[in-house]
């Protein structure tokens, strides 16, 4: 079956009901995409399909025929968002990080194009389906706002209840 993987037309022979997550990791050798819950609850397996973040654990491989799939490996070259995750300490153990970055990438791209810094509430809702058990989220929110042009010390003005 043919699909575009990180910009290259790719042919993979795998059962159509194999999870996209497993095809990426096992058949394509791209282990940057992580499995957390396998039920769409945690967001660790988030990849972009035709530019939209989806949970790759809930996508049968057959569904991405001719689609454009992008994984964390496809962002090599280090985007502003990835650099911000490094500078703002947005990652600790790293399991959730690829999913966090791919989930936030379209928001950052949109915000950069519009020249605005997304409000905390918008960042939080974007990441509502991505769990992190290390950072407490604050550094992740700050990284996303910083990638959109916020100064580190201005970013992520967290109100008490959300901290």
């Amino acid at each position: 079956m043919l699909f575009t993987l990180n910009g290259k037309i790719t042919e993979v022979s795998a059962p159509s009901m194999k999870r996209l997550l497993d095809v990426l990791r096992e058949d394509c050798g791209l282990t940057g995409t992580k499995e957390g819950c396998g039920e769409g609850e945690c967001g660790a397996c988030t990849v972009l399909v035709d530019g939209l973040p989806i949970n790759s654990c809930l996508v049968p491989f057959g569904q991405v025929q001719n689609a454009d799939v992008k994984t964390i490996e496809g962002l090599i070259g280090h985007t502003d968002l990835q650099k911000a995750f490094v500078s703002e300490c947005g990652a600790q153990c790293g399991i959730c990080t690829p999913g966090m970055i791919l989930m936030a990438a379209p928001l950052v791209e949109r915000a950069q194009a519009e020249g605005r810094i997304p409000a905390l509430a918008e960042v939080q809702e974007t990441l509502a389906g991505n769990l992190c058990r290390c950072t407490g989220y604050v550094a992740i929110y700050r990284a996303i706002q910083t990638a959109c042009g916020a100064k580190s010390e201005q970013a992520s003005v967290i109100s008490g209840e959300n901290g």
Binding site: G40, I54, N55, V59, E125, T126, G129
Partner: peptide, 9 residues
């Protein structure tokens, strides 16, 4: 409803 990634699908 659900999460952004689920709403996309």
């Amino acid at each position: 409803a659900a999460s952004p990634a689920i709403r996309n699908a």
